[in-house]
């Protein structure tokens, strides 16, 4: 009797393990999903800026042209451990030799060419909303940037989060692979802003609060969140009095261009680097972001 019970337990455990193994398997896009596309380098640069690639992948504390050398090294501390942004320059220590499909699967499925899951510190939960053509243009642009030989540093992650396979289960909850479709009620300007904000811009990754396993809380979208890196608080950017209700679209666009709020406070912390990127976009792109933010549901800040 006891023996049968134990055998049953073992069978159950094996079954659970096998199920977990299957459920946590990477789910890459097939090559047939890639469109026939001629790269547009100018659009690739726009995606590079809107996506903030340099903010994490340029060497820390660099500015100007040096931000185009994607040597990596930025340290991101989090409740799960410390992540180090890898080298993504187009050489042997970065993403040199990657196929278009490798790059698209990294950006939109969070999967390395080896098949391993990336941690969502790399914000593929937002990048999955990008148009594949924009991702291909981004790769073409990165391929024109300087090669750097800085080796990527391994993340220092605590158990159980250091079991990468487990990320497959996490992705089942938080990575749906759906393309971005703007709300039909938005005008063309706000719809373009919505794409920039929800896709490449990945604004929610910092401005939306998360649950204990790092999943974003949809009903807290853009309403501010504890800073994962420290004891700060990323501000509420919904049009609520706790957020940016008193800001005009022009003031939001001005802040994205110059870093100055309507009170002429200067944005800083990790937003400073975002301004470095967004100041290089067109005024139309910044105005589109502003238009979309003002259409968001107004939510109070919850601490």
């Amino acid at each position: 009797m006891l023996r049968r019970f134990l055998l049953g337990l073992v069978a159950l455990a094996l079954g659970a393990g096998a199920t977990g193994w299957l459920l946590s398997a990477p789910d890459p896009l097939p090559a047939s999903d890639l469109p026939n596309h001629t790269a547009d380098l100018a659009n690739g640069e726009r995606m590079f800026l809107a996506g903030g690639c340099a903010s994490c992948h340029a060497a820390p504390d660099t500015s100007g042209e040096a931000r185009l050398v994607l040597a990596g090294g930025l340290e991101l501390s989090s409740p799960f451990g410390t992540f180090y942004a890898p080298n993504i320059s187009p050489g042997p220590d970065g993403i040199g030799g990657w196929s278009d499909l490798d790059f698209v699967n990294a950006m939109m499925r969070g999967i390395a060419p080896s098949g391993a899951h990336y941690y969502p510190a790399f914000p593929y939960t937002s990048y999955q909303r990008m148009r594949v053509e924009d991702v291909l243009d981004l790769k073409a642009f990165i391929d024109t940037l300087p090669v750097d030989a800085t080796p990527s540093r391994s993340h220092e992650i605590d158990f159980p989060f250091n079991v990468r396979r487990g990320l497959g289960l996490w992705k089942r909850l938080y990575l749906d692979g759906e393309p971005f479709i703007p709300d039909a009620a938005l005008d063309d300007v706000a719809a373009w802003g919505a794409y920039l904000v929800e896709g490449p811009g990945h604004c929610q990754e910092c401005h939306t609060a998360r649950n204990a396993i790092g999943g974003r809380l949809p009903d807290r979208a853009f309403a501010g969140a504890p800073d994962l890196e420290g004891d700060g608080f990323t501000p509420n950017i919904t049009p609520h009095p706790d957020g940016i209700a008193s800001w005009s679209a022009g003031e939001i666009a001005f802040a994205l261009e110059t870093g100055f709020t309507p009170d002429f406070d200067s944005l800083g912390d990790s937003m400073g680097s975002v301004i470095d990127n967004y100041s290089q976009l067109t005024a139309a792109d910044r105005e589109a972001v502003a238009a979309y933010l003002l259409t968001l549901p107004a939510l109070p800040t919850e601490r």
């Binding site: 501010g224 700060g232 100055f260 912390d269």
Partner: peptide, 16 residues
């Protein structure tokens, strides 16, 4: 004025 942002990036945190 470029000093505003560069200093705030390193030495100021957002608390709202």
């Amino acid at each position: 004025a470029a000093n505003c942002r560069s200093c705030h990036e390193d030495y100021r945190i957002s608390r709202e």
